[in-house]
């Protein structure tokens, strides 16, 4: 089975939303409110991407809660991102054995 035309279609509908902002923003002046809104987006997007998604990494939401919780603690003490990731993975592995 060749899925090449489905892949091409998926590529197209993914590329257009990616390219649209660059095209639009070069053709308009951004008002102050929109500028401030756009500067908030990284924080809002991170919030929405983390929660509740992190609870869904396993059938048991406690696993995600433990992994996410360990990440929060390590990040709070300004650990390097790589250490936060390693700590969270280790916590999830242990939690899966215990819970």
């Amino acid at each position: 089975m060749s899925a090449w035309w489905i892949i091409l279609g998926m590529s197209l509908v993914t590329m257009v939303p990616r390219l649209l902002p660059a095209w639009v923003m070069d053709r308009m002046v951004i008002p102050g409110f929109v500028d401030r809104l756009l500067k908030n987006i990284p924080y809002a997007a991170l919030g929405a991407l983390i929660f509740p998604g992190v609870l869904l990494i396993d059938k048991n939401p406690v696993i995600g809660l433990i992994g996410g919780g360990v990440a929060v603690v390590l990040a709070y003490f300004r650990m390097h991102t790589m250490l936060v990731i390693i700590g969270a993975i280790a916590a999830v592995i242990v939690a899966k054995m215990v819970v």
Binding site: A44, L46, G53, G64, G68, A75, I85, A91
Partner: peptide, 29 residues
Amino acid sequence: IALYAMFISLLIPEMRRERKVVMIAGTAM
């Protein structure tokens, strides 16, 4: 969990830096 941990490690220091980030991210969640 890895990418979630990365997101968390990006967000938490920003939250500590500025109360408003806590509000924005919390509201989005």
